[in-house]
């Protein structure tokens, strides 16, 4: 048994390495390319994956301190929207759309607010209390905070 494991291990590492290499080649510029941001008055600095999905899925509507959450997103076909879904939320963009539509057209929740550009989204998150959104990369003097999704 031990011997078999020993023999399998190096192979496993090679496969692992190839997969990693392939994923780096196949997704240029995507990994780490999007930051989840929040208004500066939001009282938390990190949220769980479950919470991020619940927030962007419009099910969780308030922060732990009771402040209403305002969700800002880019249009469905925006490259950054695809990136935040896949990279941060681990969900396909079409599924997020389906789940919003199910809630919005049965009256069970409200839709996120849509910004037309990354710049508009950043500005809205900066001026709206309780706001959450995402941008390509937060710059040092941007008037928002980064939320770690763990």
């Amino acid at each position: 048994m031990t011997e078999r494991n020993l023999r399998l291990c190096p192979n496993g590492r090679v496969i692992c390495g190839i997969t990693l290499l392939l994923s780096l080649i196949l997704s240029p510029g995507l990994a780490g390319a999007v930051d989840v941001i929040a208004n500066k008055n939001v009282s938390v600095n990190s949220i769980s994956l479950a919470s991020a999905r619940a927030i962007f899925g419009m099910r969780q509507v308030k922060w732990p301190d009771g402040t209403p959450i305002r969700v800002f997103v880019l249009p469905d076909n925006h490259v950054l929207h695809g990136a935040v879904c896949k990279e941060r939320l681990n969900i396909f963009p079409y599924q997020l759309r389906q789940s919003w539509d199910r809630l919005v057209y049965s009256g069970m929740a409200q839709a996120p607010s849509e910004a037309m550009s990354e710049e508009e989204l950043l500005n809205k998150v900066a001026v709206t209390p309780g706001a959450i959104g995402y941008v390509r990369k937060v710059k040092a003097n941007d008037p928002v905070k980064i939320l770690n999704v763990e």
Binding site: S48, L49, A50, S51, R53, A54, G57, R59, Q60
Partner: peptide, 8 residues
């Protein structure tokens, strides 16, 4: 509703 890392 309940969301966890495994599912909703």
């Amino acid at each position: 509703n309940a969301d966890s890392d495994q599912g909703a």
